[in-house]
């Protein structure tokens, strides 16, 4: 399969690889996917509680090149956005930016899910919402 230049770039030079302190009250962590499906994404955001702006984002991904690129791109986009703007990121935005083929669309869906899970985790920890949908 031929990869787009953008996928290759993110694979070769992944942005924002790493982990934030899960115990930090302003850090939200989302982990989605499953090892037996061949994809697991962990995405973390650190939110400024005063402004609601995402100051830092990190990821680690077990998955194919497109999954790595999708999550790497997501961390780039998240930084500097506020929480509501972050939730507006759609998987189709990722598909378009990375020129993902149809068989790789699930990678972008996973990245969108990871963003939502990380923000939800932050909101729960910050007492902004109830925990009910945390594992949705």
């Amino acid at each position: 399969m031929a990869y787009s230049d953008k996928v290759l770039d993110h694979y070769n030079n992944p942005r924002n690889v790493g982990s934030l302190d899960k115990k930090d009250p302003y850090v939200g962590t989302g982990m989605v996917g499953a090892p037996e499906c061949g994809d697991v994404m962990k995405l973390q955001v650190k939110v400024n509680p005063e402004t609601g702006v995402i100051e830092d984002a990190k990821f680690k991904t077990f998955g194919c090149g497109s999954a790595i690129a999708s999550s790497s791109l997501a961390t780039e986009w998240l930084k500097g956005k506020n929480v509501d703007e972050a939730l507006a990121i759609k998987n189709t935005d990722i598909v378009n930016e990375l020129a993902l083929p149809p068989v790789k669309i699930h990678c972008s869906v996973l990245a969108e899910d990871a963003i939502k899970a990380a923000i939800q985790d932050y909101k729960v920890k910050a007492g902004l919402v109830e925990a009910e949908a945390a594992n949705a």
Partner: peptide, 22 residues
């Protein structure tokens, strides 16, 4: 880059995690 390798190195049993398969 692998969250799984990180978890294992932290001593987490991957089978104990509730994965959200898709």
């Amino acid at each position: 880059l692998s969250p799984l390798y990180e978890l294992v190195k932290e001593g987490v049993d991957l089978n104990s995690i509730q994965w959200t398969g898709h």
